[in-house]
């Protein structure tokens, strides 16, 4: 029997796009959380952290309702002629962004907080505008945080299952990602296929985390 690579590529594509999107969504949230003294700081932090404690099915269930034809967001996407997001690849990306948000926001927030304000003050006295000093000082100094955030977001998205089942279903080439494919194989007693995918995931995840810890350990030792 020929090995079906489709779920693998689909998973990598989903994780890649999700990670890329999260860098743009998560960075401003992390920056705001690291700097603000607003009373909304704690509530927002709690909302961002929800996916850490909620069963993925809960998140998936509410997203399904929200994005579905009767949902608030669903009505908007339909009015814009985009159809509805559930059971599409785009819907999976949206769900994954929510699901992996804390894995991006928390390392970034920690990295920004650890910098303190001195370097930003220095940049301000050297004529850098707020955006300028964010891009040229805060972001480069938070490099280890960005690496951690990107790797965790990617790996966590690769490993998601419950949310995908709820919002994506099991459409080959569209929403049938690795974790779902493994579940399918086990259900149909195709253990050999399941082993290939599951074993591959295990090796992949271990390698990613090992590299992350080694790189961050080195950055840490060199004092940056």
């Amino acid at each position: 029997m020929e090995f079906d690579w489709t779920p693998v590529w689909l998973t990598l594509k989903l994780a890649g796009i999700t990670t890329f999107t999260l860098m743009f969504v998560g960075t401003p949230i992390a920056w705001w959380l690291a700097r603000t003294t607003h009373w909304l700081k704690q509530p927002v932090a709690a909302v961002v952290a929800l996916p850490l404690v909620l069963p993925p099915t809960v998140l998936g269930f509410y997203l399904l309702l929200l994005l579905g034809p009767q949902g608030m967001v669903g009505e908007i996407t339909q009015a814009l002629g985009l159809g509805t997001l559930p059971f599409t690849f785009a819907g999976l990306v949206v769900a994954s962004v929510f699901y992996s948000l804390p894995f991006v926001v928390q390392p970034l927030q920690n990295a920004f907080e650890a910098q303190g304000v001195r370097m930003l003050e220095v940049a301000a006295t050297l004529r850098a505008s707020p955006l300028d000093r964010f891009l040229t000082v805060a972001v480069p100094l938070a490099r280890p945080g960005f690496m951690t955030a990107a790797v965790l977001a990617f790996a966590h998205t690769v490993g998601e299952f419950g949310v995908v089942l709820m919002i994506g279903g099991n459409i080959p080439g569209e929403t049938k990602v690795l974790s779902v494919a493994i579940y399918d194989h086990v259900e149909t007693l195709e253990y050999e296929q399941a082993h290939l995918l599951a074993g591959g995931m295990l090796v992949f995840s271990f390698t990613v985390l090992l590299v992350l810890y080694m790189v961050n350990g080195r950055l840490h030792r060199s004092g940056r």
Partner: peptide, 20 residues
């Protein structure tokens, strides 16, 4: 006037060079 628009220079007490 925001700090970055003031034509001043500031030398801080401790080393304040950008480490990167």
């Amino acid at each position: 006037l925001p700090v970055h628009q003031r034509p001043l220079a500031y030398v801080f007490q401790e080393a304040s060079l950008f480490p990167h």
